[in-house]
């Protein structure tokens, strides 16, 4: 492999075309996915737990906290979301800590499709913050394909920079891999910007908690990357098991191996359940020791989170002032 190209760059489709034989038929795809090395659950979890014991102090902690803030997809995905709520979230994303303008802004504001336009407007131009939209009938995804595509196209048309789609877990679990593959491809097509301009980046959500086994998560990672995912994402945050250190580590290994094999770099987004700075730093340590510098940026790693931001801000204040902060000293919206 001559060089590495980003999954969302112009050269990626050409690289993927090189693996066309793997995705030529349902049988070929199955053979390929089932030929991937197995995952020993206990060993994987032990490695993730081991990395979790790293002690990140002082300068390293300051770096990690700012990096983590810059990687957040600040999220609100509630039935009760309103324009006001989304605007407030956008304001928070732009200036997370009003008392310290040196605080980095978040990576994206993540909302339902009908809130994309609101977020787009609230962020304005030049904020450097993306608008991410869940789509494809998030979180269950249990609608017909045309509806999913319309959902996606609508969000893109409203100005979404990033689309977080959900896969059809039912199809995956019943072994209809090609169906899942084709659906991701179709959604990727729907991410094209009407009237030109760069396409929305596609994050593919597996819902690891429903895939149930680590072998499935590894297979699903490869399937999604072969289908053109720009990011692979652990979960919707709407089921019992969301991102865990172990299932995220496994996906980090998958993007690492995919880049080695295909030359295409794909991002990773754990989502759901990451609430504390301590947790976030553990994930960054995993990225650091599994993937290294190349993934240590918001272009390649994101946290899907809402309450995490305030904890990071409190830790950040503690580092700069030397005293422990409290929830009254960070903004709540």
């Amino acid at each position: 492999m001559s060089s590495v190209v980003p999954a969302y760059g112009p050269d990626a489709p050409g690289r993927l075309a090189g693996l066309a034989d793997v995705t030529a038929s349902d049988a070929a795809l199955r053979r390929f996915l089932h030929g991937l090395p197995g995952v020993d659950a206990v060993g994987l979890e032990a490695r993730a737990a081991g990395l979790g014991t790293r002690s990140i102090k002082t300068t390293a902690k300051a770096y990690a906290i700012d990096l983590a803030i810059s990687m957040i997809d600040l999220t609100t995905l509630e039935g009760s979301d309103t324009h006001g709520k989304v605007r407030a979230l956008c304001a928070k994303g732009r200036r997370p800590d009003p008392t310290d303008p040196g605080t980095p802004h978040v990576a994206a504001i993540c909302v339902y499709p009908d809130m994309v336009a609101v977020a787009r407007e609230a962020l304005g131009d030049g904020s450097g913050i993306s608008v991410a939209s869940v789509a494809t009938a998030f979180p269950a995804g249990r609608v017909a394909l045309p509806v999913k595509l319309a959902d996606t196209a609508d969000a893109v048309a409203a100005g979404a920079d990033e689309i977080d789609m959900v896969i059809d877990r039912g199809a995956f679990l019943s072994g209809r891999y090609m169906e899942v593959f084709e659906e991701i491809r179709a959604v990727k097509q729907a991410c094209a910007r009407p009237g030109g301009g760069s396409a929305a980046h596609l994050k593919v959500i597996f819902e690891n908690g429903e895939l149930s086994t680590y072998d499935n998560i590894r297979r699903c990672s490869w399937l999604a990357m072969l289908a053109g995912a720009d990011f692979i994402k652990t979960s919707t945050g709407k089921v019992a098991v969301n991102a865990t250190p172990a299932n995220t580590l496994l996906m980090l290994e998958a993007v690492r191996d995919f880049r080695d094999a295909v030359g295409v770099q794909v991002g990773v987004k754990p989502a759901g359940g990451i609430r504390t700075s301590k947790d976030a730093i553990k994930y960054l340590v995993m990225v650091n020791e599994t993937l290294g510098d190349d993934w240590l940026s918001p272009d390649w790693f994101r946290f899907g989170a809402s309450s995490l931001l305030n904890d990071l801000l409190m830790q950040r204040q503690k580092l700069s002032t030397g005293r422990y902060s409290g929830p009254d000293y960070v903004t709540v919206d």
Binding site: A60, N288, G292, D293
Partner: peptide, 12 residues
């Protein structure tokens, strides 16, 4: 791999 961005500070 040379990890330069995220260098761990001493944690004695």
């Amino acid at each position: 791999m040379a990890n330069e961005k995220f260098a761990y500070a001493p944690a004695p």
